[in-house]
């Protein structure tokens, strides 16, 4: 059997297949959607996106903005809240349609949060599923095995769901398709009368490798 015949027979098995670029959805933050910080304009569907940063780094504002954009597209969203810290009042003020949001309050159980996220992703039909581990103790978050993250990644693959994990540090490692690090660039206060005006958030893309930074301003409630 000649080399040509062998090549023809095994070509489909041996050759590397290039996955088509995932569809992107807007986060509702023009600075991120228009720029290249998130890749090609938004969060990827069918992929795990990880947003991490310290307390008051703007990661929750970014997540809530993405939820608001998704519910505005009339998609159904789910928020798995490991530490029960979601604030519906500020979310509603940010434009989140609360009746389209399923809120799972896990009461300080990261393990329950992972299982709930897994069930929701497997159940299907959600436009965005967010796993909020933002205030989970670092040791607990680190103890989440890569196998759990890999399971989530495989579950969301080939689905139109955007899976977002929020944490203090990057935990998903290779399982995340997009990793964004948030940091507080500057807090703005009003001049005369003391008033919290907002926060300037710097978002740095840590994965894919080429580091790109973008900034946006999150305004405080008036």
């Amino acid at each position: 059997m000649g080399a040509a015949a062998l090549q023809k027979q095994f070509e489909t098995v041996l050759c590397l297949r290039v996955r088509p670029a995932p569809e992107r959805v807007r986060t509702g933050i023009p600075e991120l959607d228009a720029g290249t910080a998130l890749g090609a304009g938004g969060l990827p569907r069918g992929c795990l996106t990880e947003i991490f940063g310290s307390a008051s780094s703007g990661r929750t504002s970014l997540l809530v903005s993405a939820l608001a954009a998704a519910t505005a597209r009339e998609e159904v969203c789910a928020l798995v809240d490991a530490e029960d810290m979601f604030d519906p009042v500020s979310a509603a003020a940010a434009g989140v349609s609360l009746e389209r949001l399923l809120w799972v309050r896990c009461g300080h159980h990261a393990e329950h949060a992972l299982k709930a996220a897994d069930l929701l992703v497997h159940g299907g039909g959600f436009g965005l599923v967010a796993l909020d581990l933002g205030d989970t103790p670092l040791e607990t978050a680190r103890r989440i095995s890569l196998a759990s993250w890999f399971r989530l990644r495989r579950a969301v693959e080939n689905t139109p769901t955007v899976l977002v994990a929020v944490a203090r540090q990057s935990n998903a490692k290779t399982c995340a398709s997009l990793v964004l690090e948030c940091a507080c660039d500057r807090v703005t206060w009003s001049g005369g009368t003391p008033l919290l005006r907002g926060m300037r958030v710097r978002v740095a893309r840590r994965k894919p490798v080429r580091e790109i930074t973008a900034c946006f301003h999150a305004a405080a409630l008036e």
């Binding site: 810290m85 999150a218 305004a219």
Partner: peptide
Amino acid sequence: AKTDRRPHDRVRLSLRVFR
């Protein structure tokens, strides 16, 4: 009933509530 809520032009600063 469905509410026709649109996201605001400006990104809002969110609060994480201690419960």
